[in-house]
Amino acid sequence: MNINPKIDKKDSLTISEYIKNFARKHSLFVLAYGTGCGAIEIPPTMTSRYDAERFGIRGAATPRQADVLLITGYLATKTLKRVIRVYEQMQDPKYVIGFGSCTINGGMYWDSYNTINSLDKYIPVDVFINGCMPRPEAVISGFVKLQEYIQEGKADGWLKYQNNIEEYRANQKRVIKNWRMPDYNW
């Protein structure tokens, strides 16, 4: 099953879009979904040594307030369910950063019975940061890349998700067999 973006790309941004994107780019509230081992790199990224707050990146406490969902590493099928719920509770526009090679192709858990292999089949991912595990410099460079995409209006994973919801749902239901999830009115 392939996910094709069905979005008509515009060539230029209007002024209001430019201002909005500028604000969005410089104010990223991050919800770190730290179940993978990569989560250990988040504290140094946020604190004095690397100080992500100078880019306007700051932690959010709940999915409702967050803009960026940072998935730090492997996802078991069980945690994938929670990730989907968290992602659907976030308010548009929302972005996802896949962090570590586990989110890209399964990493060292590529043949495990219990961890998914490619995250972008289940929820749209805007930026991947590779490495096992990526250092804080790499994390910050990933965020800067995301900021570039947002400014150019290319970080449109949330639109992709809305437009291709059936395909994403089909992929998700392949892993989560017993689908007992609430519907969020996003």
Binding site: A23, H26, D92
Partner: peptide, 10 residues
């Protein structure tokens, strides 16, 4: 910037 972004969200 934070407030502007929050107002620009859905």
């Amino acid at each position: 910037l934070d407030v502007l972004k929050l107002y620009s969200k859905e």
